[in-house]
């Protein structure tokens, strides 16, 4: 606080050293400055802030330009080695990435089908638990969910390789590296984001209803179930879109747990390769040529899917601050 006062003092000194014309005082209030066409010299943003904003926007622009510029020439020239086909056999000149697209879709759908109901259930439980013995447990679970947002995906993958894979191997047979194992871990990965978004959307509405509703004899669970949830469709959809985006964008869990076979995925116990894992593998193992072309196209597909998810989220009115960003 003392530092603040020093700043204030110094700034006031500066301000009085260059006294403003009294006529411009009316334009000093923020509302007036916004609509005022002729700006005072100190009213707009300085060049530093403008430069920073420009840099940030240019970064995003450059990202899109580079990825699109790398992928477009490949897409516009169909022929041998075109990436949009169903076969990936580099030695025979087939570089199709459609099986990987399908793999990404299958894995994300699995994670969403398992994760979304679980997230909804968890959120409802956190908001409505009334038994006194369970309150500390609910608080603990809430803390656990917040903690889960910080667990790096590579740590999830590492732990699952040595814990979950042997279990899956004994239960379902095969190598243990399959859609099921990767899907379970992805479910855990996207769960906290979805719970937090749901909670942020549902909690204020429930709290608003609570005094009247409880006075009328409804329990919190009834209020949530009968009055809040039927009106919260947008919120539920936002959580699903967000979870889907994160599940599609994650790299390390599919790379470590899904087995990375390049055929079209057939069932829960089959190995599959996602677009993200494909990109990581291609840059690690190949040295240019048509394989890189498939990499660029895969990147473009991912970018478009996730940009679409972001736009859908904006439509649904989810706040940008609550999202944890795409996985690593």
């Amino acid at each position: 606080m003392r530092r603040n006062r020093e700043h204030t003092g110094r700034a006031v000194g500066e301000a009085t050293a260059f006294p403003a014309a009294p006529a411009s005082l009316a334009a000093r209030s923020p509302e007036a400055a916004c609509g005022c066409p002729a700006r005072e010299p100190g009213e707009g943003a300085g060049w530093g802030t403008r430069l920073a904003a420009l840099l940030a926007v240019c970064g995003v622009g450059l990202l899109f330009v580079m990825v699109v510029a790398a992928a477009l020439p490949v897409l516009l020239r169909p022929g041998p080695g075109w990436p949009l086909e169903w076969l990936w056999q580099p030695y025979e000149g087939h570089f199709g990435i459609l099986p990987m697209c399908l793999g990404s879709l299958a894995l994300a759908t699995f994670a969403l089908c398992a994760g979304w109901p679980l997230a909804l259930g968890l959120c409802c439980w956190l908001l409505t638990e009334e038994a006194r013995a369970a309150r500390p447990l609910a608080r603990l679970t809430g803390g656990l969910i917040r903690f889960m947002t910080t667990i790096p995906t590579v740590v999830y993958g590492f732990a699952a390789v040595f814990l979950l894979t042997p279990l899956v191997r004994t239960a379902l047979g095969g190598t243990g590296m399959c859609l099921f194992a990767a899907g379970v871990m992805l479910t855990l990965l996207i769960l906290p984001t979805m719970v937090l978004v749901l909670e942020a959307g549902l909690a204020p509405r429930l709290e608003r209803l609570c005094p009247w509703g409880q006075a009328l004899g409804f329990s919190r669970l009834d209020l949530l179930r009968l009055f809040v949830l039927p009106k919260a469709g947008r919120n539920l959809a936002a959580a699903a879109v967000l979870g889907f985006g994160r599940a599609v964008g994650d790299t390390l869990i599919p790379l470590m747990l899904a087995g990375n076979a390049t055929h079209v995925p057939g069932g829960l116990t089959e190995s599959l390769r996602t677009l993200t894992a494909h990109m990581a593998l291609v840059t690690a193992n190949e040295v240019g040529g048509a394989a890189y072309n498939s990499l660029f196209v895969a990147g473009l597909v991912l970018l478009l899917v996730n940009a679409g998810a972001s736009l859908a989220l904006r439509r649904l009115g989810a706040r940008s601050g609550t999202r944890g960003g795409a996985g690593s």
């Binding site: 926007v57 995003v60 622009g61 990202l63 990825v67 993200t276």
Partner: peptide, 23 residues
């Protein structure tokens, strides 16, 4: 600008890596 930041926040990190790679 907020739209740009939202899209950036939703971009998978491997695409950022690809961006560096193509650069």
């Amino acid at each position: 600008i907020r739209l740009a930041m939202d899209i950036l926040a939703g971009t998978p990190s491997i695409v950022m890596g690809l961006f560096g790679f193509t650069l």
